[in-house]
Amino acid sequence: MRLWIELVVSGLITGGIYALVAMGLNLQYGLMRILNVSHGEFLMLGAYLTYWAYLVMHLSPFVFLPPLLVGLFVVGLVVHRLCFRRLAETTPEVEAFEARSLLVGFGLMFVVQNVALLVWGADLRGYQYLAGTVSIAGVGFTANRLVAFAAALVLGLGLIAVLRATLLGRAVRAMMQSPTGALLVGIDVRRLHPAVFGVGLALAGAAGALLSMVFEISPSMGEPYTVTALIVIALGGFGSVTGSLLGGLLLGVVEAIGMHLTSPSLKMVLSYGVFMLVLITRPNGLFVR
């Protein structure tokens, strides 16, 4: 029993991070058809900036979180302006746009990851933050993991609340269903797209900040999270942000239990296997509504 509680709770904690990454990626793909494979690199960037703020400026990760979100939001605006705006203008056909934006994403992945390697080197890094142990139902967890999970949940639910309760959020959701809806509600897509891209990166950065409190970080840490986010989106439904939250938590738990029951080296085989199976058999239910 103790073991199961431990597995579920630690699965939920990783799952919360997965959910944040997947929600940002899903928002970008659902609204703009940009499958941004460099998403995980911005998670890594968030982790490194948080680490740097903690070591150099002695800022607690939570104090640094708001400026980090704003910073990555601005980075998102810039990236969108430099790369995707022109692409959207020159490539009206959706299929070609998707393929090309995917390649641009790979380009960004190379650039961001290697800039990080150039600046910070390839070593693993980490810092101690809230490393004390808290006990839940007789099982001990380090405080930073619980705090990270709570923060991920707050951010995820907050995003869903914004999407459901505000007019702009509802417009975004409407447009994820049908792009022509934007014209009907009179939303300026040229402003909205960069902003939503920025929100996606901010969420990735937040996930990175939370990760850096718990795990060691390295410039190549982002890529697996991009892949996991793709799996989560395939499971939870492309375009469904709530699906990503639930899918992320679910995947975290399934992974934790699955790794316990089988060998850890099977983990990647299983993740990719499930991912491909879902895409091959239910592409319309999951990629397209």
Partner: peptide
Amino acid sequence: LIALGILLI
């Protein structure tokens, strides 16, 4: 690799 990425974009 940075140059490759930029070239690709």
